[in-house]
Design a protein around this nucleic acid. Structure first.
Lengths: 259, 259
DNA sequence: GCTGGGAGAGGCTTA
DNA sequence: TAAGCCTTTCCCAGC
């Protein structure tokens, strides 16, 4: 496809706010929070109405260069010193932090360039997030330990946010950290931070329980050394809901929906 | 475009290992580590040769549903009870962990469906990563403090990996943690973990220095309470290299390349 | 192969 | 707005 023709199509797509895809041989340059260069190769460029700008290589899941919503996108023709011309598509963005970012894609040739007016107002419904598991646990903390009563969910302390704060049979505070997947060192650090902060503030012993499907051995060692506890969180992911195994009370259907 | 025609094109693309893009009205269902549903709307599906499978909505940077390299992709026609037919594109993958994942995209209509044989063997060259900044600092630790001598870079201890291990004028061990962006509570936790682990092992006082462009206030408070230190890391990102401001020794050009 | 930890991480929620 | 922190995070490097 002729570069000029591709430019015309892109200009039209940008003007009309369409979703556009450009396929061709290009070089890519990025400057912003970091900097990068990518020399010549065939790539697929995705441009969305909201300013999203994605450069995809033929392999790998993540876009190799990207600009999020809010970028301003422009197209221009460029003629190099050797007389070769190129279609240049670029995305600029100024972040609130003051950082300016730019991606410049120089197409030497274009295999395809198309755009569409797409309509989509639906949102993804996700099941099995950490927040959902936390909500389910809140319904009956007896699963973790008989007599455990919930005090607060998502309570903010100076050093972060406690997933669930509870009280045990002896009236001790229990900090519960929920992880939807295997817990590592970072999770133990996090819990440890909350427990010591709370213990200092309340001037009494505070328990800490890490709820996760499993833990790495090193994390488990650190957990025990810090006097914290582990509770195996056994759950099943369904569609359209997640369930914790062993919960005695009838679980509310979270995230149920009609379609 | 006819659904059957789209299916034929997809089959051909899959067979020949091409990069394919499908645009149309669809529903999406995901089951795996979590589960999700997305009801009817116009979306763009990206299929790569390596099994990468991305569903993009009209807004937002991230793919709303995805499967990484290694997925097996298939296309089929389906006829619903009401007689409406659909083009079903799906991606399956079994992770090493044993988790099976699937994405099923049901297209009720297709606006465009195309594929290309793309060639690209180049890799992104990135400047200003944390590892690069660490490399630069290693060249002259005097910037942080006169008399500081490097002992080791990237040394693994039981509880993680220390960026830079050094020795100060008085012969004390100094753990240096480098962050390319603002450091938060997690960074302080990390450094704190390394320092206490090393102090316990060596049975002597160990210093900890957090090198970052800046810190959040809460993180700074925690740093001071833990007896750790902060060094403001002032750097500039260029293309094709990153430089730390104030480094006295001539900085090696890191990441320079010819193109 | 497990584990830890970075990433131009992005994005959401709450103080 | 800033800060914490979750993510189907992905990804790589080291042991």
């Amino acid at each position: 496809m002729e570069l000029v023709e591709a430019k015309r199509k892109i200009d039209e797509a940008l003007e009309r706010g369409r979703f556009a895809v450009v396929v061709g041989n290009c070089r890519v340059k990025y400057e912003g929070r970091a900097a990068s260069k990518l020399s010549e190769g065939d790539r697929v460029l995705v441009i969305k109405n909201d300013g999203t700008f994605l450069v995809h290589q033929t392999q790998g899941m993540a876009a190799i260069n990207y600009q999020g919503p809010g970028a301003s996108i422009s197209a221009s023709m460029e003629t190099a010193a050797d007389g070769d011309s190129a279609l240049v598509l670029s995305a600029f963005r100024s972040k609130k932090s003051g950082v300016k970012e730019s991606i410049v894609v120089r197409f030497a040739s274009v295999q395809a360039c198309e755009s569409w007016a797409l309509k989509d107002d639906r949102k993804l419904q996700l099941f099995g997030s950490e927040r959902q598991l936390s909500d389910l646990l809140m319904q009956d903390l007896n699963l973790i330990e008989p007599g455990l009563r919930p005090l607060q969910q998502e309570s903010a302390i100076r050093k972060g946010t406690i997933d669930i704060l509870a009280e045990d049979r002896e009236g001790r505070l229990v900090v519960i950290e929920v992880k939807r997947r295997e817990a590592g060192l970072d999770a133990v650090s996090q819990l440890s931070r909350y427990v010591s902060e709370l213990a200092k503030r309340k001037e009494k012993k505070v328990r800490g329980v890490l709820c996760a499907p499993r833990m790495t051995p090193t994390a488990h060692a650190m957990l025990e050394r810090d006097g914290l506890e582990f509770f195996k969180l056994d759950y099943v992911i369904g569609n359209p809901s997640a369930k914790i195994r062993g919960l005695q009370k009838k679980q509310q259907t979270i995230g149920a929906f009609s379609d």
